[in-house]
Write a protein that binds this DNA or RNA. Structure first.
Lengths: 207, 207
DNA sequence: TGTTGAACTCAACGGTAGATGAATTACTCG
DNA sequence: CGAGTAATTCATCTACCGTTGAGTTCAACA
């Protein structure tokens, strides 16, 4: 019962973190399939077998690099607090802040891999539905029948923004000032969340 | 000068098209890297070496499957004709029509591969800039200084829509009625094209 | 000091990838 | 027919891939 933990305790525990950092970079830059354990190990300065020693299979390594990032449960309350008319703006700002931070590399990795691997796509789907969209919409007073549509519409704009800024890197969105993007995109998100969906808002179709 | 073209002329010229069709499907379903020449050849019922015989390298095969699809120069005039206030709606409708058609498989292949391969991302970038965005915005009377930003904002919404509907397949967007998406998304595109970008439109920030 | 067990390395297996070049088939023309 | 040439196949090369298992080093405990 008492853990008999003798033997070489910590050779240097930085190695594990080095592998994780190398994996995050590789997965973000090349996606799940293209990123090889061999180049990850080389970038971390270790033997490929050591990667398997710490994290078992390649999929487990990927989950380890991706599971850390930001917990929506921590960020969303601040987004949802305050006036309802500003939730779109705060959502876009928080989104860009996270993705521009070092933790954003994990998100880029997840997004990149969601396209190539079917199980990663399912991972992202479930993450979006259960962790983000559900929480956001539970706090907003909207018709429950409209929740899924509104949520996935928000997702289209957010994922599209992430794709263009961090994956395809289309200018000028790729290197635009975050606040400029917030003011440009926030009204879209706001309308998807709380606005009228079955008619235009920029112009009246029945004018 | 006169081409001495004797010998076995066309055994059956359907083979080339069969390979192309198989390649389009494979690239669309699995992306560039995951789609192997061997399974493409198997799907077309031919030897893998025959694929190389017709189209040289794998990259050339990909370009052949992707170069055909829809010519924006054919579609955009109809989109840009008519009242300026309806261009967003017509753009989204045309977009969905193309992607829902068989030709959309090539577009899905391009989008899927643009995430995994750097050179495919560049391909998509140049296609967007030179073939689509430039043509759209040349016809709209907007401040030339705002053209790139407006164009790439439109791209974020469109690519995000394509990602969610055809790649990630997030419901209910994945199987929604196209017209419902048109009415939902068109105002966003319209505002990105001709609306005020530095302030909200769904609500007035200075009300 | 001697044993233990974790950190770490080495070499290799089995599999698949894209690509190549020679060999074979079969059609068309002179 | 017989030559020429395109269509098609076969066997193979080279290069990675993820993964495994045995072996080595070495700090921590008894």
């Amino acid at each position: 019962m008492s853990p008999r933990r003798t033997g070489r305790r910590p050779g240097n525990p930085d190695t594990r973190e080095a592998i994780l950092a190398a994996a995050r970079t590789a997965f973000a830059e090349r996606g799940f399939d293209a990123a090889s354990i061999r180049v990850i190990a080389a970038a971390a300065g270790v033997d490929p077998a050591l990667v398997h020693h710490y994290f078992g299979t390649k999929e487990q390594l990927f989950r380890a690099t991706v599971d850390i990032p930001v917990d929506p449960a921590q960020l969303l309350p601040a987004v949802l607090a305050g006036d309802v008319d500003g939730v779109g703006e705060r959502l876009v700002r928080t989104f860009l802040t996270v993705w521009d931070s070092p933790a954003g590399a994990a998100a880029v990795a997840l997004l990149r891999s969601a396209v190539a691997n079917e199980w990663t796509a399912r991972l992202l789907r479930e993450f979006l539905v259960t962790q983000v969209l559900r929480r956001v919409l539970d706090q907003l007073a909207v018709d429950p029948a409209e929740l899924p549509l509104r949520g996935s519409l928000v997702a289209t704009q957010m994922i599209g923004l992430a794709m263009m800024r961090y994956v395809i890197r289309l200018e000028p969105v790729a290197s635009a000032d975050p606040e400029a993007l917030v003011t440009a995109v926030a009204p879209t998100v706001q309308r998807y969340l709380t606005g009228q969906l079955d008619q235009g808002s920029a112009r009246s179709r029945s004018r």
